[in-house]
Design a protein around this nucleic acid. Sequence first.
DNA 1: ACTATATAATGCGACATCGTATTAGATGGA
DNA 2: TCCATCTAATACGATGTCGCATTATATAGT
Lengths: 153, 153
Amino acid sequence: MPDTPPASDLARFFAFFNEVGILNQLSTAMFEARLPPGFTVSQFAVLNHLIRVKDGRTPLDLARAFQVPKTTMTHSLSVLERHALVRTEPNPNDGRSKCVWITDAGRAFRETAIAALAPDIAGIAAVFPSSDLQAAMPVLTALRQLMDSRRDG
Amino acid sequence: MPDTPPASDLARFFAFFNEVGILNQLSTAMFEARLPPGFTVSQFAVLNHLIRVKDGRTPLDLARAFQVPKTTMTHSLSVLERHALVRTEPNPNDGRSKCVWITDAGRAFRETAIAALAPDIAGIAAVFPSSDLQAAMPVLTALRQLMDSRRDG
DNA sequence: ACTATATAATGCGACATCGTATTAGATGGA
DNA sequence: TCCATCTAATACGATGTCGCATTATATAGT
């Protein structure tokens, strides 16, 4: 019995990464349409991380968490700091380093952004069951972790 | 009986898009490490599209296919054309427009790039069953289509 | 203690992405 | 036919991302 025509692993991964790229494109566009002009998803994501995970960490910790180069994180933080959404203090444990804290303005910014986004998400969720997303998540997470580990070690 | 703590749709979508963003980050980095220096995944993706789907289309068609602004596609095509990986001709049906064709050099570039990438993919596929990817694909595709449609009309 | 090496952050330059404005050509109505 | 409007492509400017080089500090070996 002939199976479905045997798409190679290569083709499957290509197709998958292509879909991931377009989804990233679309979700970024959707997010940024709701953020105050001039702000990016990356910057929002940093604020979100500082609340959801922990603030008081170093720029390097953040860069690693987001898998971006240090220079990129330096830049993102400088934008956030210019707008007083984060503040930095010297790292008491390392004179080369510093610690990043979210400010009250940063918390407010995040709250507002999430509220502005909620209707878009709700509009999608009304048609697209989030349980489907949950079902797919373990695959994405496992692949991400694998690729993380291949990258660094 | 208490369910799993009720993660809101909002939180689920946030987590999903976050994972998509990191996967895009990692896959882009992996791809570009194997492309000739100075070339990007976007440029490769255009070549790939011209072969897998169809060449002879207009820049606007391509921009729509990739969900990027026209100006971005103009730029990508100019890079490809500068390297003679695509060529353009006037659109016989519309004097404002033009048609994009892949060249033999472009085909060769794509072949070489795919071959260079194959070992990385194989290394992942050896550990990560592509059947898992296939299982997740319909969710990604459905969500992408939904977001496409909400964006345009 | 001294020196070599490693590491955190940043300055700088290259380039991709994208919004706005512009130009050239198409299209439809009077 | 003529004009108003629309559309394809692009020039331009702003900004995000990232690699490379630099500076300041930490750490390890002698």
